[in-house]
């Protein structure tokens, strides 16, 4: 599915918009990384794309339909969203958390879980490597495991479009490689449209197909990774001097100077 934003302005109060006339699009098979310094508007852009924040001007469309025209529950069957710091109640098990991902697909919260719901939950747990944690209480998990359980919940939604805000924050390198690898696989093999905020340029370069560089609410550059991952763009966005080298698998690798 294609999700596109056209010259959107949005923000949290009237006077100072966080985003100024931002345009962006992604389609099935894309893994698009949103990159930029703190406060550049990445999270705000992601919320706008998810229909969670009203837009002041411009439009967000999914396959051509304006997002505010799609009923929220129907939107939730297409699009899943992972907030930057999700609230996770400690008293529920991993399975109960992942099962809530099926909420938009069920008629009432009181109806029985169908085979399809059950299969989606099992698959989501397997994909994130959380199967053995199924019956554990969230309060007994480490931060990384909790994050993976929350990612499993978004997968149980069986979305066509996946919006992730810093899915690898606070994770150790091995685990964040796992998560980034999963993002890559979801886009490449399962044909999802993935848009993710990432703070690690090299993770983005290696596992995403496209990137958008944001600064002060504007998109400075957007395109495929080899096109945009240049010393000029990085300097312009982050005020950081880098040398671009060849990384594992031939992808660009940023080395700060």
């Amino acid at each position: 599915m294609i999700i596109e934003a056209e010259s959107i302005s949005a923000g949290y109060n009237r006077r100072s918009p966080v985003l100024r006339s931002v345009s962006l699009s992604a389609e099935s098979g894309d893994a698009l990384a949103l990159l930029g310094p703190n406060g550049s508007g990445k999270s705000t852009l992601l919320k706008v794309l998810g229909g969670l924040l009203p837009i002041r001007s411009g439009s967000v469309r999914i396959d051509g339909t304006p997002i505010h025209r799609i009923p929220p529950k129907e939107r939730a069957r297409i699009l899943a969203f992972l907030p930057q710091d999700p609230v996770l109640p400690g008293g529920i098990t991993v399975e109960e958390l992942v099962r809530t991902g099926r909420f938009p697909c069920r008629n009432t919260p009181f109806s029985a879980f169908s085979k399809e719901d059950e299969a989606a939950v099992t698959e989501a747990l397997e994909k994130t490597g959380m199967s053995s944690f199924r019956k554990r209480l969230l309060s007994s998990l480490s931060g990384g495991e909790r994050r993976k359980a929350r990612i499993a919940m978004t997968l149980a939604q069986k979305p066509k479009i996946l919006l992730l805000d810093e899915p690898t924050a606070f994770l150790y390198p091995a685990v964040s490689l796992n998560v980034a690898g999963l993002i890559h696989k979801l886009a490449k093999e399962n044909g999802l449209t993935v848009i993710t905020v990432l703070h690690d340029l090299n993770l983005a370069a290696r596992f995403c197909s496209k990137a958008a560089f944001l600064r002060s609410g504007n998109i400075l550059k957007t395109g495929t990774i080899p096109e945009v991952m240049t010393p000029e763009t990085v300097k312009l966005t982050f005020d950081l001097d880098v040398r671009i080298m060849e990384g594992p698998g031939g992808t660009p690798f940023c080395m700060p100077l």
Partner: peptide
């Protein structure tokens, strides 16, 4: 509202992204 309250426990952003007002 009990079912929706369960979802609300996961935070406002998550709840609205799951289609809840």
């Amino acid at each position: 509202a009990a079912g929706r309250l369960n979802i609300l426990a996961l935070g406002d952003d998550t709840a609205s992204s799951l289609g809840i007002s």
